[in-house]
């Protein structure tokens, strides 16, 4: 298929849900080094809610994203979860009235979501957050219209961004106060996004 449809979104949610079984404690552990140790559990709950949201009968991509955004907002009030919901709301606005979009529109969708998340949360590119991972993936899939190529490029970009920021320090949130200690660690939000991209692109 050369277009992204609601079926693709449902499959992505299923793939993410399946992946969280192994990822939950991995992400909790990553978060415990820089935060409060609950990123994996929060995302598990959030993705469970997404999976429970019945999007099969939604008439458009916009309605699907909107329903998922509402499910995400109901699942958590955490920073990462709220940013995630903000991204879904943006995707809903960008796809208003459309049943499908070409794969080549994934990049602008990711970029717009990234910008909305920056505006809501206040972090910038380079701060070592989930935003850097979204940015890198958006750049990598720009202009691609073949789903296999999109998946491959997204996965590669995820690995690149993880490696690039591993030895950087956190510049936002509480972790900025012990910036040196954050060198040699993955940001849990960035790690979560990359691992979920891996799972969904599989």
């Amino acid at each position: 298929m050369t277009a992204i449809t609601t079926q693709h979104i449902a499959a992505a949610v299923s793939g993410a849900k399946a992946a969280m079984g192994d990822l939950e404690q991995v992400l909790n552990e990553a978060d415990s080094k820089l935060g409060d140790g609950d990123t994996g559990s929060m995302l598990t709950r959030l993705i469970d809610r997404l999976a429970e949201a019945d999007t099969a009968t939604e008439p458009s991509l916009s309605d699907t994203f909107s329903k998922l955004a509402r499910a995400a907002m109901g699942a958590t009030g955490s920073s990462l979860g709220t940013l995630f919901a903000t991204g879904l709301m943006t995707a809903s606005r960008m796809t208003k009235g459309r049943e499908a979009i070409p794969w080549s529109e994934l990049a602008p969708l990711l970029s717009a979501s990234r910008d909305a998340m920056m505006a809501r949360g206040g972090a910038k590119l380079g701060d070592k957050t989930v935003l850097d991972a979204i940015h890198e993936v958006a750049l990598a899939v720009e202009g691609l219209n073949d789903p296999v190529a999109v998946a491959q490029s997204a996965k590669q970009a995820g690995q690149v961004v993880l490696e690039r920021f591993f030895n950087e320090s956190c510049k936002v949130g509480r972790a900025r106060m012990f910036a040196d200690k954050s060198v040699g660690m993955h940001d849990p939000g960035m790690l979560a996004f990359v691992k979920l991209v891996d799972a969904v692109a599989r």
């Binding site: 415990s32 820089l34 140790g37």
Partner: peptide, 28 residues
């Protein structure tokens, strides 16, 4: 320990303390 997590939010040796730690276990 957060109830859904399988390990504590941080580790601290039995004879150590951490000054300035956050109320969620953020490093001090």
């Amino acid at each position: 320990r957060v109830p859904t997590a399988d390990r504590p939010t941080f580790s601290l040796a039995g004879d150590e303390i951490e000054m300035g730690m956050g109320i969620h276990g953020e490093p001090g």
